[in-house]
Amino acid sequence: MVNGDPSRLAGQCAVVTGGSRGIGLAVARRLLADGAAVSLWARDQAVLEAASGQLAAGARVSCHCVDVSNPDEVSGAADQTRSRFGRVDILVNNAGILGPRAAVGDYPHEAFETVLAVNLTGTFNCCSAIVPEMVRNGYGRVVNVASVVGKDGNPFVSGYAASKAGQIALTKSLAKEVARSGVLVNAVTPSASETEIFGRLDDDRRQKLLANVPMGRFVEPGEIANLVAWLCSPECSFSTGAVFDISGGRASF
């Protein structure tokens, strides 16, 4: 059971990328509980359909098979979402991949480019396709799901860290562009959450992931979704270009 106020986002439409599992699915569930219609974007059609079944929200959910690194696919999904729900009021850029673990000298160049293409260019593509409409409508909320790694860095994941730092910079730049339009753009920076992005975790890897988290545990997807939901709501009215830490005390700034 997800707590929510069905009147909070009634009549609004939210796009959630990477919405078929993990953090994205938790965000979708929370936005639905707050009354929004939700368009789930992800790359695996079968997983998307399974997620839609879990949400059990009927006509208030649509699914679109999209590779966010492909601007044509993003543009097409945006058009399909508008055709279904009329407009897009909320964009949650959550789609992301971790990439390999390797020292910089051994990190495959193609893998580095792929991580940037999905995590950073994908965020840009989605903003490019949707934010101008929000500006014309005089209202919108954009939340970019970055990572505390984009602030503090982690060894052996240079592609992921660079992409998440780029998301934070893109958040700040775009927020300043549209600051007087009624569109607010913010980022959240979670510490590690025990989701599919990490694959199967052995005890050593778990300990390393938690070593820098003062609260000593993983953040739950539902906790991230609660923060994202506030940033998507009209209650968030004077925060833009901000980076909201949800890292159990890990972040140093």
Rank of each mutant, 00 (worst) to 15 (best):
G248Q: 01
L31V: 11
E49F: 12
V115S: 03
A169K: 07
R141S: 12
S237P: 02
S20F: 01
G96H: 02
A10T: 10
G24I: 12
Q80G: 10
R87C: 13
K151P: 03
G22K: 02
G58K: 00
P108D: 08
V38Y: 03
A28I: 04
D44L: 09
R200M: 13
L209R: 06
S83V: 10
V15I: 15
V47P: 02
Y160M: 03
E235P: 10
N93Q: 02
F198G: 02
T189I: 05
T195P: 06
N154S: 14
N94K: 09
Y160L: 07
P6A: 05
E223I: 10
L9M: 05
E177I: 06
G76T: 07
R250Q: 15
V148I: 15
T81I: 13
A56K: 14
D79T: 12
K208T: 08
D72T: 15
I90H: 06
A161V: 15
A26Y: 09
A77L: 01
V2A: 13
V183K: 10
L227Q: 04
V104D: 07
P190N: 07
I97N: 01
A50N: 11
D34N: 14
N70A: 12
E223A: 07
S75P: 01
S247M: 01
N186E: 08
D79V: 11
E177S: 14
R84L: 13
R43W: 09
D67C: 10
V74T: 11
I224H: 01
Q80H: 07
W41H: 07
S69W: 07
M134N: 08
C236L: 13
T240L: 05
C65N: 04
V219C: 10
A14S: 04
P234Y: 01
W230E: 00
A59C: 03
N144A: 12
V38I: 12
S147I: 09
P221D: 00
R200D: 15
D202C: 07
R180I: 04
L32P: 00
C126L: 03
R60K: 12
K151V: 15
A102R: 12
Q167K: 00
D67A: 13
V131G: 06
V92T: 11
G53L: 07
A162M: 05
R141I: 10
L120E: 02
T123I: 13
V131W: 06
C126N: 09
A162L: 05
C232F: 04
A161M: 11
A146N: 04
A225M: 06
